[in-house]
């Protein structure tokens, strides 16, 4: 009898152990190529006492540099963003962040209002898989799942990635038990430049109204920030495309007015921010490169200090020490990329 129990327990351990190991091996590590899927999980390694949180899609994680906000203004910020992060995912990532900390300001990029429902399973994965398990994550998954997706596939990602064994890379083994940092407080750095030329204009739409579900989650975000006494700032990053329609702008402006929220459309602040679309974008106007992101961050930092009362925390010893390390990694990555892209910096 005792032997039987031992055998059963040993078998169960073998099953659980091998399945856990296989799962770790098969899930994408997002350390090469598409690294956006790793951003959400990196947040949990942070000491969570940020003054400012950004939430949104690529229009935040590629357009604002927390390093500059720290260096120039002493603002301790973090970006909770991932590729095509939908508004409901931004809401739940914010709710998730509030489980750990209360920032003074939240900046939300409203580009994702255009999507009332999830558009792609792959983007869902990148936004949701990195979240730590909590009731918030469960709600985020159910809010995001497209037809044909299953909660079980999120609970046990091996079911989703079971065929990845044929595409495994050495990095899958190298980062089996630890992740490689790929962002700088959620910022995705690119130093190369590709001028914005021949930017396509938007095709006329049959209906310019944002979907009810998108509004619902913006309302929820406003309510959450009010409840937590956090200042919410709406922004539209200066990406030239996807095209930002005037009809969309009107709706957001009206909403911000009604709710008494600050709204900054960086597309209209080109002169103030100094963005030069010949040098400040790495993909022809879709996203900012380092130069563009640093310009935007400097302008936003000034605005935040002036309008939200964020204070300079550079005098805090522990925090400064942590940032020292981060800045050194940030500068190292800058140098690496300048070298990689063959860019003369003059330094």
């Amino acid at each position: 009898m005792k032997k039987g129990y031992i055998r059963t327990v040993a078998s169960a351990l073998v099953v659980v152990g091998t399945l856990a190991l296989l799962q770790r091996l098969l899930v994408p590590k997002y350390v090469d190529g598409i690294v956006e899927g790793a951003f959400v999980a990196e947040y949990y390694k942070e000491v969570k006492d940020h003054d400012l949180l950004f939430v949104g899609d690529c229009e935040v994680y590629e357009n604002f540099s927390p390093a500059v906000l720290w260096q120039d203004f002493g603002i301790n910020s973090y970006i909770r963003g991932s590729a095509e992060q939908y508004i409901f995912q931004s809401y739940y990532l914010l709710e998730d962040a509030f489980r750990y900390e209360r920032p003074d300001v939240v900046v939300f990029n409203i580009q994702s209002l255009q999507f009332a429902e999830a558009q792609s399973e792959a983007y869902n994965r990148m936004s949701l898989e990195g979240m730590k398990w909590s009731p918030t994550k469960v709600k985020a998954i159910f809010a995001s799942m497209k037809e044909g997706e299953h909660f079980l596939d999120y609970l046990f990602p091996i079911l989703r990635y079971h065929t990845r064994w044929s595409q495994l890379e050495p990095t899958d083994v190298e980062y089996l038990f630890h992740a490689k940092p790929v962002s700088f407080n959620g910022y995705y750095m690119r130093v190369d430049a590709k001028p914005a030329e021949n930017v396509p204009t938007g095709k006329p739409l049959a209906d310019y109204s944002f979907g009810d579900n998108a509004w619902k989650y913006l309302d929820k975000m406003v309510e959450l920030c009010e409840k937590e006494k956090v200042q919410l700032v709406l922004i539209k990053a200066p990406s030239l495309y996807p095209y930002w329609y005037p009809q969309w702008e009107e709706q957001v402006e009206r909403y911000a007015r009604e709710k008494g929220l600050p709204y900054l459309n960086f597309l209209e602040l080109q002169e103030e921010t100094g963005i030069d679309y010949r040098t400040d974008t790495y993909d022809g106007g879709l996203h900012m490169n380092l130069s563009g992101a640093e310009k935007l961050s400097r302008w936003l930092g000034e605005w935040l200090v002036e309008h939200t009362g964020l204070t300079d925390r550079r005098g805090e010893e522990d925090l400064s020490a942590r940032w020292e390390e981060k800045l050194s990694a940030y500068e190292a990555e800058k140098r690496r990329q300048y070298e990689f892209y063959g860019i003369e910096t003059g330094n």
């Binding site: 078998s11 099953v15 399973e121 044909g148 596939d153 079911l159 989703r160 079971h162 065929t163």
Partner: peptide, 28 residues
């Protein structure tokens, strides 16, 4: 013996799990 049985059936389970044509990318 028990461990032979275990390896055979668990191996078959893993084969279905890892080589089965199911989930995203496959039409059910």
């Amino acid at each position: 013996p028990y461990w032979v049985r275990f390896i055979l059936w668990y191996g078959l389970f893993l084969a279905v799990l890892l080589m089965g044509a199911y989930g995203v990318g496959y039409d059910a």
